[in-house]
């Protein structure tokens, strides 16, 4: 019998379940990535701050989150967080179930991981901006916010983009770790299908192909963005 019937859509195959899992993976990755970038920016700013306390806190955060296995961050949020709620509930005399929702815990974990990595990327990119260009902006009386929005941010993004593409890949792969919470994303669906049909080879190959497809598409998108943001350094004339 053709083993590919296992990938069919409908009640007899795993096609629709895999599509759902893949969509969930993309949603977790997209939310985690977006949230991580937004959180990463102030962390990078804190890393570069002249304030010793801000620098210390952000430094510890970035070092710890990047230094420990990502799985541990997910465990901490999903189970550790739950245990924290548990203590509170017990103290209040409530013995029922209190649990971190798998989706929220998963997305939050990815945000925290992505923020640590993107903060370091942003920090390096900020430092790569030629000092003279910042000085010129100051010499013309730009306010700090104009300087940041018009000069630093767009220049920084140009330097950051290639490494941010790497962070996205990391985030995409980290979603697979979220499956430990039981959240039904692509990797969990693959595990269920592989174990239930006893066809691990077929399903793991399918997972590889789906992840590669995600990677290929996002690589194209990042290449386009890089071309767009670096058009000024390639030295094109006009638009």
């Amino acid at each position: 019998m053709n083993p590919l019937h296992l990938l069919a859509f409908g009640p007899t195959g795993w096609g629709d379940e895999l599509a759902y899992g893949a969509a969930m993976t993309l949603v977790i990755a997209a939310l985690g990535f977006a949230g991580g970038l937004v959180l990463g920016l102030p962390i990078a700013a804190a890393r570069l701050s002249s304030n010793v306390v801000l620098r210390a806190i952000s430094g510890v955060y970035v070092t710890v989150v990047r230094g420990v296995p990502e799985l541990l961050v997910i465990y901490l949020l999903f189970f550790g967080g739950g245990q924290f709620y548990r203590y509170v509930a017990d103290a209040l005399g409530y013995s029922g179930a209190v649990a971190a929702d798998a989706f929220s815990a998963g997305v939050l974990a990815v945000i925290l991981i992505c923020a640590a990595y993107s903060a370091e990327v942003f920090r390096g990119a900020f430092q790569a901006i030629p000092k003279g260009q910042i000085e010129a902006a100051n010499a013309f009386g730009m306010t700090r916010s104009t300087l940041f929005c018009r000069i630093k941010l767009p220049q920084m993004l140009r330097y950051a983009l290639p490494s941010i593409a790497n962070v996205w890949q990391l985030v995409l792969k980290d979603t697979a770790l979220v499956s430990v919470t039981g959240l039904v994303e692509l990797m969990r669906t693959i595990d269920v299908a592989a174990g239930s049909t006893r066809s691990p080879f077929l399903f793991y190959m399918t997972a590889i192909l789906i992840f590669l497809a995600f990677t290929a598409v996002s690589n194209k998108a990042f290449e386009g963005a890089e071309r767009h943001f670096s058009r000024s350094v390639i030295g094109g004339y006009g638009k």
């Binding site: 030629p130 003279g132 260009q133 000085e135 010129a136 902006a137 100051n138 010499a139 013309f140 009386g141 730009m142 306010t143 700090r144 000069i151 767009p154 220049q155 140009r158 943001f229 000024s232 350094v233």
Partner: peptide
């Protein structure tokens, strides 16, 4: 800072290394 910005807005400066903003035309 506001006083300094005020002064800077009434002056123009040209640098040894040009310091044009490289992301702009």
């Amino acid at each position: 800072r506001i006083e300094i910005e005020g002064l800077r807005r009434r002056t123009g400066m040209v640098f040894q290394q040009f310091n044009l903003w490289s992301h702009w035309t």
